[in-house]
């Protein structure tokens, strides 16, 4: 476990320096990035500290938050195909952001409203599922809320002025391009705290994987505890969506990769998944900037391109498992 954490932290450091190397040219060797940290020219130093680093910090912690929420949501719903977006949070945040843009509000307000919209969507999901946190009902309600918000969003997009269309695309496809230090500082403070809040529920997350009855018999309250987990995960996802838009599939992929490496035990998974999630987000952002350089792809395109086949592979695996069970 210690070796694993060390390897992962090292790879995150390499990813950070590789990202920094992008200051010079796409696809530069990570060592170039390292050199930038050691002896930068004044211009490079400005680029590095004002553009590159906040973006690296934002993307790493956004990935970590999505992965942490994904691991917790998968354990909570005993469903390895579950993803934070499933319970309506992403749809709510995107719609709120679009509404804020429609009214011409400043970016800070757009982020705040997107955060509130994400949490509001979760509330609506719970209301539709009649305050039940039963697995199937909540996920079905989440799909319904996503569908409603998705169609409202499409309606809204048709009425948006051209200038706002570009910004709304950012929300729909996800991007770390607008990163600045205030955002990075917020993520530096909030992300470790949210990851920690989800990590400290590891006992409950383990027991919930055995079923709510077992959790109850072992002395835990599965309703209140489960609701707490969903709330923390919703806060994590809403924070990401409100600043980076909808970056799909990291919340699904990272916990799965972590599970392959460290098993299902939540005490290990809720550490490994955020590290892997952060690393995946850095990698996806690096690809988004490098593939069509000097043009930049939305990062959500990269994560979806990798994530959709991954999801299908998982579906196939789970189908096989249930046939052999």
């Amino acid at each position: 476990m210690r070796l694993f954490t060390l390897v992962l932290l090292l790879s995150v450091a390499i990813a950070l320096t590789a990202g920094a190397a992008l200051v010079l040219a796409p696809g530069s060797h990570p060592s170039v990035g390292l050199a930038l940290f050691v002896s930068p020219t004044e211009v490079e130093r400005q680029l590095l500290w004002q553009l590159r680093l906040p973006r690296q910090v934002l993307s790493f912690f956004a990935g970590a938050l999505l992965a942490s929420a994904g691991g917790a949501i998968q354990a909570r719903f005993r469903n390895s195909l579950a993803e934070p977006g499933l319970i309506g949070i992403s749809g709510g945040a995107a719609l709120s952001a679009a509404l804020a843009l429609q009214f011409g509000l400043p970016v800070t307000w757009v982020s705040l409203l997107a955060f509130a919209g994400g949490l509001g969507a979760l509330g609506l999901t719970c209301l539709i599922s009649r305050q039940s946190v039963d697995n199937d009902r909540l996920i079905l309600a989440g799909i319904a809320v996503n569908a409603i918000f998705g169609s409202l969003l499409t309606l809204l997009i048709t009425t948006l002025p051209d200038g706002s269309l570009r910004t709304i695309t950012f929300w729909l496809m996800g991007s770390f391009a607008n990163a600045d230090w205030p955002q990075a500082r917020l993520f530096l403070l909030a992300a470790p705290w949210l990851v920690w809040l989800l990590f400290r529920e590891w006992r409950l997350l383990n027991l919930l994987q055995l079923g709510p009855e077992t959790a109850f018999h072992q002395g835990f309250d599965p309703r209140r505890g489960g609701a707490r987990v969903v709330l923390f995960a919703a806060m994590a996802v809403a924070l990401v969506v409100s600043h980076c838009g909808m970056v799909g599939f990291i919340g699904l992929m990272a916990p799965h990769l972590a599970r392959q490496l460290v098993g299902s035990h939540a005490r290990r998974l809720q550490i490994a998944a955020p590290l892997i999630g952060g690393w995946l987000a850095l990698l996806a952002d690096w690809l988004a900037q490098s593939l069509l350089y000097p043009a930049e792809l939305p990062v959500g395109v990269i994560t979806s391109l990798a994530g959709a086949p991954f999801f299908l592979w998982l579906l196939r695996q789970s189908g096989r498992r249930s046939r052999h069970a």
Binding site: R78, N206, L207, Q209, G211, T214, Q218, R259, G263, S264
Partner: peptide, 15 residues
């Protein structure tokens, strides 16, 4: 009783 792959028997007992 429910179970999930990826846990060892000892980890389940420790719960």
């Amino acid at each position: 009783p429910g179970w999930q792959p990826g846990f060892s028997a000892a980890e389940l007992v420790m719960m």
